[in-house]
Design a protein around this nucleic acid. Structure first.
Length: 430
RNA sequence: GUACCCAUAGCUCAAUUGGUAGAGCUCCAGAUUGUGGUUCUGGCGGUUUGAGGGUUCGAGCCCCUCUGGGUACCCCA
């Protein structure tokens, strides 16, 4: 990505938003392709929801006191005075679609995934953009802890296919409506007695959302948080067993994880399991690759029925950044293996149709009809890293033949035009 | 939203104490009139240094504002 300003050009992309240029597209294609494949294997069906949603959906769903809702949404009012926002995350929108379209009549669990842009108004930096891309997975309608574990398995499966290793799961359980209130009380009491040692943000948050004090980055707050009562010690039997279940399944899957009692996450709807996955050697400050958890109460909040669910989101920008940082090679499947060189008026005319034939036969073929010299065309062929160049000139066009040039050895051979497809396919296989 | 750093050709970077912008790569063309990856030569490329204002005889360089980027927060993917 360029760090240069383009403001001498009259227009520039809005702050925190960028163009994904052709040279980066192979990364995006690869990542998306792997995600689609893994989603299918794990039984997820695709859903696409609008980029705009009612503002109220996120106030209710994500939570009125979360930073996302408080200060990071792109708001707009329509001519009809509807209050809409660019979606800052997927989950409430997916649940809305699930409820609105009667997907609850399908056999449960209903497994849905979606992939696309989300928008958050904040200060951009590496791995944080105002328009970023997520892949989002939701499993609706079951509370079996195996589903929580399977989501993490799914993420590791995707990473494995992308060649990403050295990752570690950060996991915690934050309880449910049964046990959270009493934990909250314990925590609040603990923090009240240490109130004067807290930063100003935390003093404010103490009233609204005391759980969030646990992952404050202020040194003084960190040391207070270290002594704070831990969520897992206050879980009710149900939550405790559930969490044990998740961890047992992770052990069974041999997925690396560490219990992180300070992981609470900023969205209001989480219950029980919360998790993120970080690169192993990082401290996770802003590079968590995915994050999610269980949200057994969200659906009731947005609808009527009390339906449990679990889900998570993958940050595609961060996945791609990591692939690049670790210099993992991505092979573009669409890279051409043959370049058709045309020479002279007749050659040019005849190659036009030949190009179509070759391409229809399934060969990945490149060409440059606007360049006329053989030199320039071969140069291009070389740059594209093509295996063979096919040369159709005046002479060949008359003879109904074509030259096959091996771009590695430099040797070439004249072949009858009628046999070219078969010959090339034979050679590529070698 | 807060703090610090940054901004010169498409890209990576030069420019002595403020003295009037230069190189490599890329791109295009030629050497080689039907043969690429090396080499050599030439050309395009900056409405003059992200934008606007100020100081000065003179600003890429100093000051202010804005825009964008980076990093650390806040928070999250």
């Amino acid at each position: 990505m360029s760090n240069k300003s383009k403001s001498k050009n009259k227009f520039q992309a809005p702050k925190g938003m960028r163009d994904i240029l052709p040279k980066d597209q192979p990364y995006w294609e690869k990542v998306r392709q792997v995600i689609h494949l893994s989603a299918k294997v794990f039984g997820f069906e695709r859903i696409d929801t609008p980029i705009l949603e009612e503002k109220e959906l996120f106030i209710k769903g994500t939570g009125a006191y979360t930073d996302i809702v408080e200060k990071e949404m792109y708001n707009l009012t329509t001519k009809g005075r509807d209050k809409l926002v660019l979606r800052p995350e997927f989950t409430p929108a997916i649940i809305r679609a699930y409820l609105e379209n009667g997907l609850s009549s399908l056999p449960h669990p209903v497994k849905l995934y979606s992939i696309g842009p989300i928008f958050r108004y904040g200060r951009p930096q590496k791995g944080r953009y105002r328009q970023s891309y997520q892949a989002n997975f939701e499993v609706i309608g079951e509370q079996d802890p195996i589903l929580d574990a399977q989501l993490i398995q799914l993420f590791f499966s995707i990473c494995k296919k992308l060649g990403l290793k050295k990752l570690i799961t950060q996991i915690n359980s934050i309880g449910c409506s049964e046990c959270r209130p009493s934990y909250r009380k314990k925590l609040t009491t603990y923090y009240r007695s240490n109130k004067k040692g807290l930063c100003s943000d935390c003093q404010r948050r103490l009233k609204q959302n005391p759980l969030r004090l646990l992952d404050c980055k202020e040194p003084k707050c960190i040391s207070i948080a270290e002594e704070a009562p831990q969520t897992i010690d206050s879980l009710c039997d149900n939550c405790s067993n559930h969490f044990k279940g998740v961890l047992e399944y992770l052990d069974e899957l041999e997925i690396p994880y560490i219990l992180n009692s300070r992981l609470v996450r900023g969205l209001d709807y989480y219950t029980k399991t919360v998790f993120e996955v970080w690169p192993e050697d990082e401290d996770g400050r802003q590079i968590s690759l995915c994050g999610g958890g269980r949200y057994d109460k969200l659906i009731k909040l947005l609808g009527k029925k009390d339906i449990p669910a679990v889900g998570f989101a993958i940050g595609l920008d961060r996945i791609i950044n990591l692939i690049k940082e670790r210099e993992i090679k991505i092979v573009s499947k669409s890279a051409p293996s043959v370049f058709l060189v045309q020479l002279g008026d007749l050659g040019k005319k005849k190659s036009l149709k030949l190009f179509e034939e070759l391409q229809q036969s399934g060969l990945k073929i490149a060409s440059s009809f606007s360049k006329n010299t053989i030199k320039t065309q071969l140069k291009l062929a070389d740059k594209m890293n093509v295996r063979f160049a096919l040369i159709l000139g005046q002479k060949e066009a008359i003879d109904k033949s074509i030259i096959v040039r091996d771009m590695i050895s430099g040797s070439q051979e004249v072949i009858p035009l009628s046999k070219i497809v078969r010959e090339i396919k034979k050679r590529i296989k070698k």
